[in-house]
């Protein structure tokens, strides 16, 4: 164990101990501390408002397939947080992925480098036929995930990732499969523009950026929850295109 690593070990151990200490504090009267595991008191957190969907209205009950025209309308509360209450974070997050894809494109300066294809010999038969079968199914699964994002677990990110994996497998299996750079950038840009466009439209009509300007319908229905499904569709295309772009760049670097 080199001397340097020993110091690093000691310091990181000290760091971990200090962080652990934060959990073992016995609170004096009236002091706030971290709650033990499983004892997170939701009711005096903002999360309670998101659960009752009562940020602007003081709505109490959210019943599946019954309550109508609530302020957020998405059955999956996490989706309502990601795409509605805190959609500015998600917009920021999409930009991070977009910048990463752009950065990788620059670093590996693809445009003029000779197209060095992935050197793997043509992969085994099972892989090829398996992927030929799986590719459409994966795309279908991905679409299902992001279309039903506001009802069941899943959403833009997960759907996009599944689509990207489908393309990754396709690219791995046969070398002749070629996605043109133009198509990826077009998909990326249109998806990005539509997301920001939705936000700007909300700004123009309702007065604040990314505000929901559509009816939220009844909780649990497919066509409900206002602009959340639209946002998730845009996110899915964007994430899918970007991750495929990253993988394509890495393969062809």
């Amino acid at each position: 164990m080199k001397f340097r690593n020993l110091i690093a070990l000691v310091i990181t151990a000290a760091f971990a101990l200090i962080i652990l200490q934060a959990f073992t504090i016995t609170p004096a009267a009236g002091e706030i501390t971290l709650n033990e595991f499983g004892k997170a008191d939701i009711n005096n957190r903002t999360a309670q408002l998101y659960l009752n969907k009562s940020v602007n209205t003081d709505n109490k009950k959210v019943i599946y397939q019954e309550s109508k025209n609530l302020e957020s309308g998405s059955a999956n509360i996490v989706t309502s947080v990601v795409a509605n209450y805190r959609s500015f974070d998600t917009l920021g997050e999409i930009t991070v992925l977009f910048l990463a894809a752009a950065g990788i494109g620059v670093v590996l300066n693809l445009e003029n480098s000779k197209k060095k294809k992935f050197a793997a010999d043509d992969s085994s038969l099972i892989l090829n036929t398996g992927i030929k079968l799986l590719f459409p199914l994966l795309l279908l699964a991905g679409t299902y995930i992001f279309v039903y994002g506001h009802l069941s677990p899943g959403g833009g990110f997960q759907g996009g990732a599944v689509i990207a994996t489908a393309f990754l497998l396709k690219m791995l299996s046969d070398n002749k499969f070629e996605i043109k750079e133009i198509s990826i950038t077009l998909v990326e840009s249109t998806a990005g523009i539509s997301f920001v466009g939705l936000g700007l439209y909300g700004l123009v009509t309702r007065g604040s950026f990314l505000e929901n300007f559509m009816a939220t319908g009844t909780v649990g229905q497919l066509f409900s929850a206002g602009i959340i499904p639209l946002i998730y569709i845009a996110i899915a295309f964007k994430v899918g295109a970007e991750l495929t772009n990253i993988v394509k760049n890495l393969i062809e670097a």
Binding site: A40, I42, A47, V62, I77, V78, E93, P153, F157, G220
Partner: peptide, 26 residues
């Protein structure tokens, strides 16, 4: 899980905190 579906139809039931999940997603 913080999802209202046929299994737990109303928000009266106890849910896990959705906000950290949204943060972790990002």
């Amino acid at each position: 899980a913080p999802i209202i579906n046929s299994v737990n139809p109303s928000n009266a039931a106890a849910f896990v905190d959705p906000i950290p999940q949204a943060l972790v997603l990002t």
